[in-house]
């Protein structure tokens, strides 16, 4: 009970791991590209949470700086991902990731 009421770094890490798992499940099982992209955002956020938690644990700010870089990366990823999605939708008129198989022979 004591450990439940005292929030340590581990608590944040477990939360991050749970989020990460949710993201992984989303990426691996969903068919809708939009939701897959959102699951990737979940994964990135789980990473961010860990980075910031470690930053607090060590008392330095490197973790926070890296979290900002990850957010930048997420923005770039979302822009390109959604661009691909639009191009894909225009060609196939679907958003199902199963049908992204043009390279398969």
């Amino acid at each position: 009970m004591e450990s439940m009421l005292h929030i340590t770094t581990l608590h944040y890490l477990v939360l991050g791991a749970a989020l990460f798992l949710l993201g992984v499940i989303g990426v691996l099982t969903r068919r809708n590209v939009v939701i897959v992209l959102m699951s990737i955002e979940l994964i990135l956020n789980a990473v961010n949470l860990n980075l910031v938690a470690f930053s607090r644990m060590w008392g330095g700010l490197h973790g926070q700086v890296f979290a900002i870089f990850v957010i930048t990366d997420a923005a770039a990823e979302a822009a390109v991902g959604l661009g691909i999605l639009i191009a894909f939708f225009r060609n196939k008129e679907t958003v199902n990731i199963d049908e992204v198989n043009l390279l398969k022979w």
């Binding site: 923005a75 770039a76 990823e77 822009a79 661009g83 639009i86 191009a87």
Partner: peptide, 10 residues
């Protein structure tokens, strides 16, 4: 690069 990529894609 992402901006250019997104524009080119869409």
């Amino acid at each position: 690069v992402a901006i250019i990529g997104a524009v080119v894609m869409a």
